[in-house]
Design a protein around this nucleic acid. Structure first.
Length: 576
DNA sequence: GCCGTTTTCGGCCCGACTGTTTTCAGTCG
């Protein structure tokens, strides 16, 4: 029976929630939460790793007990102890303990006092004003909970980073323009470049700190103020996005920026490290005894605890701290390292602009080359190119290149991978091109074995250069295909072909974990816009963020190469 | 339940804010 890492992580999370409801040892609870997080960050599924002899005890935060539980889970799909725990705690309490302002303690208190055992009974108790009678609760809390329950039903979910960016930039400008404000930064998951963002964390330095809460209340886009204090204010925007604004003194700005950038797991780990060195770390600085020894800038904080600077995108406690200690951190690729884009559409198929316009836009975006990769003709792609239209486009590209200065257009195609792994155009057509991006656009639901075989067969075709948006996911809309990525990466390396990191904000495909794994298999990554209009090259910045989260350095990215070297690398993908 | 450059036992990150208290617990990030 296939057992997935996400199922295991969810079981660990449930274990933690139920133990919390029983007010068990918080450190034991935390051990389960940590285990869930560690499992979620794994690039390869545990079931196959364990089958190959891997000992889960080797994972950080996993000891003898959890290792045994993992082995049992992988074998049976059951987490030892979870079933009996479920019987001792009402199931519905789990869903309400994650409501804002309700935690395990309050959820339990409502259950004990009122018999509240799920969302429905909670709603009733709130409506009948029985909650305010419970010891530890009151009218205010009742009001907050009522609001939180309403919000849950409206399902305010995480926003794509690119969407959150619009709200973030507007509020940033507003805060920056306030009298007395000297510094503004956006920290949190936004700064770490996460693909989705749940809230926005602002850091502010101001000579008039007491004004900030009021200013936030007066902001056009503020729906309601959640908190207002001398160092922290919080609000919900009309967009549903929650905003936290922290006020910090200049001398603590770096420490606060570091602290509020997170991730939480990274912070906890680094703080343990500092503690082992006899230092104390918080958002105000690094302290030896009472003496602050660092804190005005982020680099000063790193220096004080004896670590090299770690880029925000890496701060997930996925090995970056150990790498930093070993002086083995990557120098993450930057947007300015990109010289080209190997996945671009035109109005010949579903794009909005013509060849020349896309080439000029690429040049303005600082690129030296692009590959035009319109769709192949296939089911569902109404205007996909057949062999004759493709031939005409190739002639057009020759003519355009003769006229262009400072940017070169390569001939390519985004060819469909058919259900059995063959391609939608014959080899004799593909071999005339510079770049062949092969992508899956249908049959997403094949099982793991079939999907893996399909991709391996496509990789083995003699004229394929890049596997396009390999996971085929749409963030928050469509899950990734099931696939043995380890096999795909190994085959891509042997062949060789390259893997795409598609920069469309809804795709970001490969994701951070798999990008890192692909690069670890010595597969070059093509960071591509998949552009359909002249503004699409802006997406590359988001792709680069994801690449940085996947630890990629410049030399691991295909399109950082100068054109002549790129041509050489592309020729290597064409067999015979 | 994990873990060890003071420890194999006794720790485990830490401060802010709120509401409900009468000195603090719970939640959040």
């Amino acid at each position: 029976m296939p057992v997935h890492d996400e199922d295991l992580a969810e079981a660990f999370d449930e274990m933690a929630d139920l133990l919390a409801l029983k007010a068990e040892n918080p450190f034991r609870i935390n051990a389960y939460r940590r285990a869930a997080q560690v499992v979620r960050a794994l690039p390869e599924e545990l079931q196959s790793k364990i089958a190959a002899g891997f000992d889960p005890d080797a994972l950080p935060g996993i000891g003898a007990d959890l290792a045994e539980k993992i082995r049992v889970f992988v074998r049976t799909g059951e987490l030892p102890g979870l079933a009996s725990l479920r019987r001792s705690v009402p199931a519905g309490l789990r869903e309400i303990m994650n409501i804002q302002n309700l935690g395990p303690k309050r959820a339990r208190a409502l259950y004990d006092a009122l018999g509240v055992c799920d969302l429905k009974t909670l709603k009733t108790a709130l409506a009948e004003h029985r909650v305010r009678e419970v010891r530890g609760f009151g009218a205010k809390m009742e009001e907050r909970l009522t609001k939180a329950v309403e919000e849950i039903e409206g399902r305010s979910r995480r926003l794509l980073r690119s969407v959150a960016a619009q709200y973030a930039k507007a509020l940033e400008s507003y805060l920056r323009a306030l009298p007395g404000v000297t510094k503004v930064d956006i920290a949190g998951s936004f700064r770490r470049g996460c693909e989705t963002v749940g809230d926005l964390d602002f850091l502010v330095c101001s000579q008039r700190p007491l004004d900030i809460g009021g200013a936030l209340l007066e902001y056009d886009e503020t729906a309601s103020l959640l908190a207002k204090g001398p160092t922290r204010s919080a609000a919900v925007l009309k967009s549903g996005l929650q905003v936290d604004v922290r006020l910090v003194p200049e001398e603590s700005y770096g420490a606060a920026l570091y602290y509020f950038t997170g991730s939480k797991a990274h912070n906890v780990h680094v703080r343990r490290l500092a503690m082992a060195r006899g230092l104390k770390m918080n958002e105000y600085g690094v302290f030896r005894g009472r003496k602050r020894i660092a804190g005005d800038t982020e680099p000063s904080v790193f220096a004080a605890i004896g670590l090299p600077y770690i880029a925000p995108e890496l701060r997930e406690d996925r090995g970056e701290i150990e790498a930093a200690q070993a002086q083995a951190l990557p120098i993450p690729v930057a947007r300015s390292d990109l010289r080209g884009d190997l996945h671009v559409h035109t109005k010949a198929t579903d794009g909005a602009a013509g060849l020349a316009a896309m080439a000029e836009a690429a040049k303005s975006a600082g690129l030296e080359y692009i590959a035009i990769t319109d769709h192949s003709k296939h089911l569902g792609m109404v205007r996909g190119l057949d062999a004759s239209r493709l031939a005409r486009q190739m002639d057009d590209i020759d003519a355009l290149n003769a006229a262009l200065d400072g940017v070169t257009v390569l001939k390519g195609i985004e060819v469909d991978i058919l259900q059995e792994g063959s391609l939608a155009l014959p080899d004799r057509v593909l071999k005339k091109l510079d770049v062949v991006v092969a992508s899956v656009h249908d049959y997403f639901g094949l099982n793991r074995r079939k999907q893996t075989e399909r991709l391996l067969r496509a990789i083995d075709r003699p004229y394929v250069s890049v596997l396009g948006h390999p996971m085929c996911r749409l963030i928050q809309e469509r899950p990734a295909i099931e696939c043995d990525w380890e096999k795909v990466f190994r085959r891509a390396h042997e062949r060789p072909i390259y893997l795409e990191l598609n920069s469309q904000p809804t795709r970001l495909d490969l994701n951070d974990v798999l990008v890192r794994e692909a690069a670890a298999n010595d597969v070059l990554i093509s960071i591509a816009s998949d552009g359909h209009s002249i503004s699409s090259f802006d997406f590359l910045a988001g792709g680069v963020l994801q690449a940085r989260r996947g630890w990629l350095s410049k030399n691991q990215v295909l399109n950082t190469r100068p054109l002549c070297e790129l041509r050489r690398l592309l020729r290597k993908t064409f067999l015979a």
